[in-house]
Design a protein around this nucleic acid. Structure first.
Lengths: 357, 357
DNA sequence: ACGGCTTAGGAAACCGGTGTCATAGCTATT
DNA sequence: AATAGCTATGACACCGGTTTCCTAAGCCGT
């Protein structure tokens, strides 16, 4: 045996008809009676091609169902048709919706989404990202929070001259390369909802201080309350880890404290569900004794009893927009799209007027 | 401006230092004083290379942190370093865990995971898959259920001479190209658990008949019951859609029927949560009046009250194994790994002895 | 000393596209 | 008329690897 041969490579003589094997740009060129360079120009929408010629070539391409080889283009263009998703969000719901949105936009294009989970706790995560970019030369990288908030990562990508889009809840240095979420606005809606129900003594359990979204949501909540002349008491704000367990722990502590609020705004649904558990432990009924608002509108919010009032961020739409922005960057349209997406409060059964109004 | 030029292509004279721009196989060859073909042989572990030469070249590669360009190899080898995940499972939890498992295995390799959601209801889904495979030439495709159960898809991949691994709960035609899940075994455990608690009148809500897993789980449940001399009554088995809503609907119907079971085994957790909702509607307490068992061990199972007894399949492990199998296939090791993974029953608070024992 | 076999390595074509540069045919300007 | 400038196209090298084919050296038996 010579070098190990592929499993079913039958050594098909490529001569003979133009069938037998994939058709290439050479085939199209021959069929159209032009050079491959002209076909290449048509492929890339180069302006200097006669309209007649262009139509003729396009027709032939369609007739033969020709699609250029992305690998070859990648090699020649020194840029692949791969877009990386660099993420570290622990919520499956979030990740999957983001993926769906991106894939929505890529549908019908030649672009593919490749996954690159980032573990920012690992010392070599920057090296791994660098290797990924250097070797696979993705056309771009999409970063949802909290990867998007990491300046070291953004610096690296800039150094590597790699397009990227950051999805974040605040304005970040590099303009025009981000999709804006309005976490603060959503949190403000939660505040207004609770305040207008008559709550005045409210607690807040927020995510880790290292996440910008934690701050955004908290300050948005405060702003919303301020409209009603209410201020958030520091002794009623707790930091947790955006997880069920930490949310439950914080709520247990909170509910066994000296001051008992009539409502709790949790920084995400996971923690809100943790609050449910703590409320059960404390013998409190929801929403009778305690109103609860979450953030994210995970599927669980609708399924749990009582249904959780929460804030929905259009994650899928944001993914779609981010993908669109990457495509525009790749095509050199540096349009300052910088879109932002409005959150929406979903009112279910976990919020009601406080008892002693 | 001529054709849009790459951002930083300064026409760097490649002579001079070996820095300035990525280093290629030619650089390594020059530095080692051999031809590029010899370097290529080292890269591919070709046997006919002198041990001295090989070591020398490898050393140089490490020193200069050389990594061959995947795009170029893809072009030459007519095979990329991309592995596709063709999936249609609606559960984010499932999808994310599968992705994690696969990525676990790819870590440290040059392989990347690209997503290819499949909508088998769309008339062109086969065309889209074909286009993906033909144009990107993935090294392989991993298919979890229920895509894995689609023979048309498997036929297509075989026709395209594309490696694939199917993850499925039953033996499928092509041997040695699958990872086996044991849904039936898990369902049998659920049956034994309920039967040994003393239940004798049990209902089953299963997934769509078009999913093999529905049948596997049902027949496994029946086998488990049979060990206790119990048989599943046909009038107490319902088909639903693996979703919360359909599960709730089936349970409502079931609980308002003439025969009231003391336990319900739902084909997945989503439907089991739907049963919770129906039980609340019917004023039944869980597990006092009704025991419930689910399947999947989604995060929700642990968070809902009362905690849902359910069957856990090691999805992440299965993903890892599938990725491993793909790698073996690519490397020509046609080892009949055909591994299978044991399910595990997680007992929480939704199951108890029936009231009137 | 010669042919045959095995081992080690190189030259050049190739994978399927793209960039650079040259060129032919026009029209517009001087 | 000659020059300049634009349009439309092609020849050819190139991207960074792999493959095919070939050569040269070393060892063996006769």
């Amino acid at each position: 045996m010579t070098e190990p041969s592929g499993p079913a490579s039958k050594k098909t003589v490529p001569v003979k008809g133009d069938e037998r094997g994939r058709i290439t740009i050479n085939d199209i060129a021959r069929l159209a009676g032009v050079s491959k360079k002209t076909v290449s120009r048509v492929l890339n929408d180069h302006p200097l091609v006669n309209e007649e010629t262009r139509k003729h070539i396009k027709l032939i391409m369609v007739e033969h169902d020709y699609h250029p080889d992305p690998q070859a283009r990648a090699l020649a263009l020194r840029r692949s048709f791969l877009v990386g998703l660099a993420y570290d969000n622990p919520s499956p719901q979030y990740v999957v919706n983001m993926q769906r949105g991106i894939l929505d936009r890529f549908e019908g294009t030649d672009y593919q989404l490749v996954l690159h989970p980032v573990d920012r706790a690992a010392p070599d995560h920057l090296t791994r990202l660098r290797r990924f970019v250097e070797s696979h030369r993705p056309s771009g990288i999409i970063m949802p929070p909290s990867v998007s908030e990491d300046e070291a990562i953004a610096d690296l990508l800039r150094e590597l001259d790699c397009h990227y889009i950051r999805i974040a809840s605040l304005d970040l240095d590099t303009p025009q390369v981000m999709v804006r979420t309005h976490d603060a606005m959503g949190a403000a809606q939660a505040a207004r909802h609770l305040a207008s129900l008559g709550h005045t003594l409210m607690a807040h359990i927020h995510g880790p201080n290292s996440f910008r979204s934690s701050h955004e949501r908290m300050s948005g909540f405060q702003e919303g309350l301020a409209e009603f002349g209410i201020s958030l008491r520091p002794d009623l704000t707790f930091e947790a880890g955006y997880t069920y367990e930490t949310g439950a722990r914080a709520a247990n502590q909170l509910l066994s404290g000296p001051v008992r609020p009539t409502a709790i705004f949790a920084g995400n649904d996971e923690m809100a569900i943790g609050v449910y558990s703590a409320a059960r432990n404390a013998g409190l009924s929801i929403p009778g004794d305690l109103s609860i608002v979450g953030f994210d509108d995970t599927p669980m919010a609708a399924r749990i009893a009582p249904g959780l009032t929460t804030v929905r961020l259009p994650i899928r739409d944001m993914g779609r927009e981010a993908a669109d922005a990457i495509l525009k960057l790749v095509n050199g349209q540096n349009s300052p799209s910088n879109k932002s997406f409005q959150p929406e409060i979903i009112i279910r059964d976990s919020t009601a007027r406080p008892k002693q109004v």
